[in-house]
Computed example of a mutant assay.
Amino acid sequence: MTDEPLADLALSRSSLDRVALERRRSEVLSELLEDPRTRVAEIRGDRMQVVDPGDRAAPTAPGAPSAAKASGQDASRACSAGALGLVLRAPQPEDRERLVLHLGRDGDGTAYVGVVSPGPHEDPAQPGWLTLRQAGEALTRRDAGLFTTGLALANWHATHRFCPRCGAPTEPTEGGWVRRCEREGSDHYPRTDPAVIMSVVDPDDRLLLGRGAHWPEGRFSVLAGFVEPGESFEAAVAREVAEEVGITIDAARYLGNQPWPFPSSVMIGFAATTRQTELTVDPVEMAEARWVTRGEYRDLLREGTVRTPSGISIAKRIIEHWLGDTVESVTGGTSPRW
């Protein structure tokens, strides 16, 4: 295990300028939707349309056939970021009737917007339409940022249609980054819920793994929990470990962070140490917890009896940081994931 922070986390790779000052102009979305150079990423439920590198033709009109060929299986097989890309199109007239999100500009000045399609989207078999969990690890830096930011904003809009102060309807403004109360004019901003996630290592350099109370057999990860009001990140690490497994940590070192729009979190990673090894599991939170050596964890991976966190999660990277290797290098390819 090195002392270096985690680099290039899957959902922390956004490369666009968010142009916050530009979003304040009331006419900015109208201008962008009138400009054929604007690139539009459509959001259907929790999915965006994805294509492989050699076939990025996008539909140009509603109902036009798409050449997208990517699938969830394709994404799970992708070995490196950049293997997949989002379908991006020019603005269409009906976009004006939808929720539009100004997602930023690239170095060439090209603007990118997200357009949220109305209504339910329950068909997971639509060709090329993948969730962020399926596609995020394999997307380019730009497209990973577009998907992550667009999904987080869409999730917020879906649950904040009314003013928390007076109950009146709210309407989107400032490029989709603010909702304004129609009655009293108060502004409401997207919320992000911070959560800490941490490896815990004992004096024998064993890693603590836990299985959530409602998780299936074999699904283990490092511990995590939300930060409470008035609490520092380090204090949250200590409290969550004490609550879930009954031990006291000695220290916690920052490792990195990434957005986690499921629906609206940011995960702050730490590496913690403890001299205590006797676990007292909270049955409300945890089904079981166990210490593993690196050799034991490698054996469990090869046997397929442990399911690792998904490739886009900081949890997987934290485990690999302790392991000193990637999960795929241990298993010779892929491994059972959530």
Results as ranks from 00 to 15, higher is better:
residue 217 E to H: 09
residue 120 P to M: 11
residue 329 S to Q: 13
residue 159 T to S: 04
residue 50 V to Q: 04
residue 66 S to A: 15
residue 51 V to W: 03
residue 336 P to N: 07
residue 164 P to T: 09
residue 192 T to C: 10
residue 205 D to E: 15
residue 334 T to K: 09
residue 71 S to N: 11
residue 32 L to C: 12
residue 304 G to N: 04
residue 281 V to G: 06
residue 100 V to T: 08
residue 70 A to S: 14
residue 150 G to W: 06
residue 272 A to R: 02
residue 131 T to V: 05
residue 153 L to C: 00
residue 226 F to E: 14
residue 262 F to I: 04
residue 239 R to S: 04
residue 154 A to Y: 04
residue 247 I to F: 15
residue 150 G to R: 00
residue 182 E to M: 15
residue 61 A to C: 01
residue 274 T to W: 08
residue 252 A to E: 12
residue 234 E to C: 05
residue 279 L to A: 03
residue 301 L to D: 05
residue 233 F to T: 10
residue 132 L to G: 09
residue 277 T to Q: 12
residue 268 I to N: 00
residue 218 G to A: 04
residue 30 S to R: 13
residue 248 T to W: 13
residue 290 R to L: 08
residue 233 F to C: 12
residue 326 T to K: 02
residue 316 K to R: 09
residue 297 Y to E: 14
residue 151 L to F: 11
residue 129 W to Q: 05
residue 207 L to I: 12
residue 89 R to A: 09
residue 244 E to T: 13
residue 149 T to P: 04
residue 42 E to M: 01
residue 9 L to A: 07
residue 62 P to A: 07
residue 115 V to Q: 13
residue 19 V to T: 15
residue 37 R to F: 14
residue 18 R to I: 10
residue 45 G to R: 02
residue 85 G to A: 14
residue 170 T to F: 02
residue 124 P to M: 02
residue 226 F to G: 11
residue 287 A to F: 02
residue 335 S to M: 08
residue 26 S to F: 05
residue 47 R to Q: 03
residue 117 S to D: 15
residue 35 D to N: 11
residue 239 R to P: 02
residue 234 E to D: 07
residue 320 E to T: 03
residue 198 M to T: 15
residue 109 G to W: 00
residue 109 G to L: 09
residue 200 V to L: 07
residue 35 D to P: 13
residue 162 F to P: 07
residue 320 E to M: 01
residue 155 N to G: 11
residue 19 V to P: 03
residue 92 Q to K: 12
residue 249 I to E: 14
residue 108 D to G: 14
residue 282 D to N: 15
residue 322 W to K: 05
residue 214 H to K: 01
residue 28 V to Q: 09
residue 76 S to A: 13
residue 81 A to I: 07
residue 185 G to T: 13
residue 110 T to F: 01
residue 167 G to L: 01
residue 134 Q to S: 13
residue 334 T to I: 10
residue 304 G to P: 07
residue 255 L to K: 14
residue 229 P to T: 00
residue 279 L to F: 00
residue 6 L to M: 12
residue 208 L to A: 10
residue 279 L to H: 05
residue 333 G to E: 02
residue 64 A to C: 05
residue 77 R to M: 15
residue 71 S to C: 11
residue 172 P to W: 05
residue 59 P to G: 12
residue 142 R to I: 00
residue 333 G to D: 06
residue 26 S to N: 03
residue 316 K to D: 06
residue 229 P to N: 05
residue 96 R to C: 05
residue 252 A to K: 00
residue 222 V to C: 10
residue 232 S to V: 05
residue 257 N to G: 11
residue 311 G to P: 00
residue 22 E to Y: 02
residue 260 W to K: 03
residue 154 A to Q: 01
residue 228 E to G: 09
residue 117 S to T: 15
residue 35 D to A: 05
residue 276 Q to F: 08
residue 98 R to C: 11
residue 93 P to L: 03
residue 74 D to Q: 05
residue 119 G to Y: 02
residue 49 Q to H: 04
residue 102 H to Y: 06
residue 293 T to V: 08
residue 52 D to R: 15
residue 28 V to K: 06
residue 26 S to V: 10
residue 335 S to K: 04
residue 289 A to G: 13
